[in-house]
Structures are given as structure tokens and as C-alpha cells.
Design a protein around this nucleic acid. Structure first.
Lengths: 248, 248
DNA sequence: CCAAAAGTGTTAGACCTACACCCATGA
DNA sequence: TCATGGGTGTAGGTCTAACACTTTTGG
């Protein structure tokens, strides 16, 4: 059984080395209609059909989300949704805000709990549900038209991430295991939306002392190869206990 | 109509000049039962009765909260709940987290959206609903036993407030219109749980430049009378636009 | 040898921390 | 006149911001 008035929407952020992207999908109206007609027990679809009729007429993009099952906790369900579209398990997920205006969704009262995920998209393919017409990464500065209040939700997630990234080392979830200092800096620049001074940035990061040199370097780059670093999570936890204040 | 699976709980913080307190209430089991028997249409009570049977047997304290009406937005409803118990309108309210574990409330799936309110309790009396046996302020360091996961919710609200107060001037909502620098400092000390240096605190606050001297002083105090200040909201907004970073 | 990005240090000013004594008031 | 909290300044160390050139690599 699904809770008809409660959904979870996930703003899935991915950093490709240059830009911050969000994963969006588009339902296939024909398929939706077909499922509703042929199978009234497919509750998720029936609710979608009743509450979001615009999905049947417009090709609009939306966040990955669904109504919450009675027997699934919110955090757990956000993981389910994320792994359902990215195939990744144990993703970094942050509940950031719940949206509960009366008219945020037409025809129906749906309160949605917003989570954002931070993933490194490099090595993973997307998984599309049978109802999906398209699923794609969009640069956060060039979003398409979105259904309902999903644009507001994305902006809100981004603002939350911006604050969070200044004081907590969450950004590492967006990077591959081994990364260069330039990649790290670029990531901060696209999230914060401002340029950072390369020398000051490196000094600050190195002083915090939770990067490990992997010993490796970039290969096959048409310029001097950069050193690859790893994030030392154990050291970070230790430093936090001793009262470190991470601050970009 | 009420949404049976969604409630709002308000952690109402009040600062009395010395301690940070939370407003809690206790239902009256006899009254609850009576209302349920005599009036099946009193939906709020019926739901409470069905989902929270322990309220009928134990005298437990809980947060001020209720199930959300179909036609009321979440933010609006949090205001309703707060004004229903404090009589105050246009209170500072912050949605901080939504709690959605499956078993947070026995017998029933209820997802609750947590808000905290910051008020100055000095000049206001509490308003008790007919179902209330007791309603009281509790020092946050000496909470009674609480029903459901309400202790967790309060701790979570407090942590959120602690972070928030470091970077945003929200603390002013806890103070009366006119206050002394010592009251301001004490407020920060009890929220942050640490002593601050008086001279450095005053320098920092004065440099931020959004306090106005009211020209008045304390009266009838058995020591040198302190100057009374007001918070200059317009100036603060202006400084924020210019890129001020408030930081205690 | 050229293009492209990696990598590195110093200085001036702002900010933070630690710390101790006199002042005004009411009882 | 005493008890109580109000109110004030300085110095040393740390952090921040601004800024330009050399190195390495592949093509």
C-alpha cells in the first residue's frame, strides 16, 4: 500500500568534472495510460494518473520521485528511488526540505519530502523504469521546463548544498575515488558559483590534512600530469572529533 | 478532513533571560476518552486515540503538534499550532526536518514535519486546549520523559538551531524588543552550550553594526544599569545584501 | 618547440584570542 | 560602604587575500 499524500523526490546531483548536473526523467504518456487501463492494481501509476494528469498531455521533465509505501521509512525509500534510477547503492543522501503547500500539485494534496543525492556519474549507467520515455543529465544552469514545483525544489536543494559544502566535506561524494586538486577546486567553483584562487585553495586544503597522495598521476593528458589524491575519511572523522572546522 | 499519515510537530523554544526552554503539554486521558465516546466526529481526537493509545494510559509529555488538515499548507499549519498554544501570531518558525521512520509512532504510520519556533515568553500567557491536562516550559537540559520520538525531535531541533544561530541573526526572536548586551550574550551561551568572552563578544557584535541604542537603561536593578539595545532589522537586511557574514 | 595545465611563496592587512581593572547603582 | 554586574583596550599570533612565474607533458 502506498501513502497517497506523501511522496519523496530526489534531486540527484552528478559532477562530470566540469559541470554540476541533475538527473531528470520524462514519463511516457502512452505507456502510462496503457498501464492504467490494463492494470488497475498498479497503484503507483494509478495515483500518478489521478493526481498528475498533465503527465499525460505534456512532455515535461521531472525529478525522480514516487509515493511512499506504508512499510518503508523515508530515508530507506529515498535510497530505493536513487538506486532504482542510477543502479548505485549506499549513495550519499541528504533530506533537505519538505514541500507542503496546498496547490503544489494539481488536483491532489501531495506533500513531498525532498532529498538530494551526490554521486559520481563517471562509471555508472542509468536504469530506466518501463514508464520512462527519457532520462538525462541536465546542467543546473540550463534546466528544461519542469513539472509542478520541481524547479523550486531543485533551487532549494542547490542552496542547501551550497551552504553544506562550505562547512562539511560532502563534496567528496561527487568525485571519483582518485581525483586531482584541480578537479576538487572546479567542483567547489561550480557548486558555489564563484572562482577561487588556486594558490589559496591548495594551501587551505593541504592544511586541513585529510587528503592522501595516491602516488599516481594522470595519464594521457596533453599537458603536465597532475597528482591524484584520495580523501582520507578516517583522518577526517578524527580531526572532526578534535574540533576541526572545515571551511572553504 | 485531516491527513491521517501526516502531522506537524512544533518545538517551541523560549528564552527567559537565563535558560533555553521548550514548551510541552500533557493530554488529559479522561477527557480524551470522553470526547472519543461522545463525539465520533471529532476527527483529531479519534485519530489521536487510535494511533497513540499510550496517551490514554500514561501521563507522558509531548510536543505541540497535530495532524495536518487537507486544506492547510504546512507552514501555515505550523503557525496555527504555535498560535494555538502561545496566543502569538507571526512567530519565527523554521522547518528543520521530517521524521518518517516506520515505527516512530506505535500502531500507525505517521510522518511528522518538524518545525521550531523562537519566541520571547516574557509577556505572553499560554493557551490550553480543552484536552490539555498540563502545559509547561521545560529547561532543555532537564526534559521529562517524552512520548514517541519527541526527545529525538527536540535534540534535532536544538542542533539545527545551534548551527543556524552561528551564521544568521535568528536569536533576536528569542529576546524582548529591548535587551541588554549581557542578555544577548547569555542567550548565545545557553544555545551554544559554551561560555563566550565578554569583551570579544561585545566587539564582534558592535562591529556588525545592526544594534541600535534605544537610549534607555535598565531600571530597578541592584547594580549599575545596563544600556538597552534594539535589533535594527532594516540595517541587517542591507548589510546582508552587501555581503556581510554574520558569525558568532 | 609549442600549447596547456600543474605547481609553488610572500607580504600586508584583517581578525581572533587571551586577559584585568574601574564604574555605577541599590540596598 | 558593600555587593553586583556593567563596561572598556591592547598585544601577539593566526588567517586571509592578492598576486606571477617556472615546470612538466604530449603532440
Amino acid at each position: 500500500m502506498l501513502l497517497k499524500n506523501i511522496s519523496v523526490d530526489c534531486v540527484i546531483f552528478g559532477f562530470d568534472g566540469e559541470r554540476l548536473n541533475v538527473l531528470l526523467w520524462q514519463a511516457d504518456p502512452q505507456l502510462l495510460l496503457k498501464v492504467v487501463r490494463e492494470n488497475e492494481d498498479y497503484e503507483q501509476v494509478r495515483i500518478l494518473y489521478e493526481s498528475h494528469p498533465s503527465l499525460l498531455t505534456d512532455y515535461t521533465w521531472g525529478l525522480i520521485g514516487a509515493h511512499v509505501p506504508y512499510e518503508t521509512g523515508l530515508d530507506e525509500f529515498a535510497q530505493d528511488i536513487t538506486s532504482g534510477s542510477t543502479g548505485l547503492r549506499n549513495v550519499y543522501l541528504r533530506q533537505f526540505q519538505t514541500f507542503g503547500d496546498c496547490n503544489r500539485v494539481a488536483y491532489y494534496r501531495v506533500i513531498t519530502v525532498g532529498y538530494y543525492a551526490l554521486i559520481n556519474p563517471r562509471y555508472h549507467d542509468l536504469q530506466m523504469s518501463p514508464l520512462t520515455r527519457k532520462m538525462m543529465w541536465f546542467d543546473i544552469d540550463h534546466l528544461p521546463r519542469l513539472c509542478f514545483d520541481h524547479e523550486k525544489i531543485i533551487i532549494s536543494a542547490l542552496n542547501h548544498l551550497r551552504e553544506s559544502v562550505k562547512y562539511h566535506p560532502v563534496g567528496f561524494h561527487l568525485l571519483p575515488e582518485k581525483f586531482t586538486l584541480t578537479e576538487l577546486q572546479t567542483m567547489y567553483e561550480v557548486i558555489l558559483g564563484e572562482k577561487l584562487d588556486i594558490r589559496n585553495f591548495r594551501k587551505k586544503i593541504q592544511k586541513m590534512d585529510f587528503l592522501l597522495e595516491s602516488g599516481e598521476k594522470q595519464v594521457n593528458v596533453p599537458h603536465r600530469a597532475a597528482r591524484l589524491y584520495k580523501f582520507d575519511k578516517d583522518k577526517y572523522e578524527l580531526l572532526v572529533k578534535e574540533g576541526l572546522t572545515f571551511r572553504i
